[in-house]
Design a protein around this nucleic acid. Sequence first.
DNA 1: TATTGTTATACTCTATAACTATA
DNA 2: TATAGTTATAGAGTATAACAATA
Lengths: 161, 161
Amino acid sequence: MVLDVTEVAGGPHDAVGFLLAQLGTVTARRFREVLTPLGIEPRQFAVLRLVAQSEGQSQQALGDSLHIAPSQMVSLVDELEQRGLVERRANPSDRRVRALHVTAAGRKTLAAAGRLAMEHETRLCEPLQPGERQALIAMLQRLAAAQGLHPGVHPGLDHGS
Amino acid sequence: MVLDVTEVAGGPHDAVGFLLAQLGTVTARRFREVLTPLGIEPRQFAVLRLVAQSEGQSQQALGDSLHIAPSQMVSLVDELEQRGLVERRANPSDRRVRALHVTAAGRKTLAAAGRLAMEHETRLCEPLQPGERQALIAMLQRLAAAQGLHPGVHPGLDHGS
DNA sequence: TATTGTTATACTCTATAACTATA
DNA sequence: TATAGTTATAGAGTATAACAATA
């Protein structure tokens, strides 16, 4: 999905909505670029982290948590598996489900991605004075809550709510 | 372009980058919905406003200002013209260019869109206390400037810089 | 009959490259 | 030859529906 917003007050540049949309797209694109050295996309990072956090879950259970459609989970996990970051294991009690587990390589990649993400965050917040970052986060979280957003859910996937 | 970001610090929910991407997508989607009663999209709103602001410019000049490719301007202006909001007039001195002008209906729609945008902005900023909105805007503008963003440029269109 | 994972299909967006008519 | 507008084409991304295996 593309991001298009052009809001207004006197001009768009002093509207919160416009600034959020503008910064949101750029931030997302930059983060995608940040991850490319690791060969994964932001959504795969999200899946990888969730798998590591609770191993053995089914694809669809993970997809529900991240608001990713089942058919999208397939190709997403396909690539993670091809890169050797994740394993699909059989579930003896229900042979339909594929239990997902992180490999050792997956944990290494996950750690590296976390470091890159932190660097990205630091770089993004560079223009803020100490203390401002926390104030900004508090305000953004209030706006997000008012919009009915769940804290941990990936934006581009969160189409319904 | 789609917005995918999943950032991290301890969790994604306390990262500025994640919150910006999440709020950016939602804000953009809501604004698109806000405009639907008028039958125009956010980008068409941007074009319409720019045409009204400086009449008689060529399509490509406007496209340059908004970072919209020439081929996209065509269908965008096509629809605006079909809805009777904009006119393509011939330029006697150079018969290749199409000078764009707003119609009376276009001005009415533009005014209505401006009102809807302001309502949208107000609704979005409802959770902020008086004064916080200005502080938020100031911080976001600083972040945007640090990312090299031009003030008036539409986010989804701003792919290069 | 319902569910997991998968495949196939269609639809939108975007990017690029041709093409025309003018210059 | 270069430029404004247009058209055509290909690629990504997304959403939906159909399908096989299993429950």
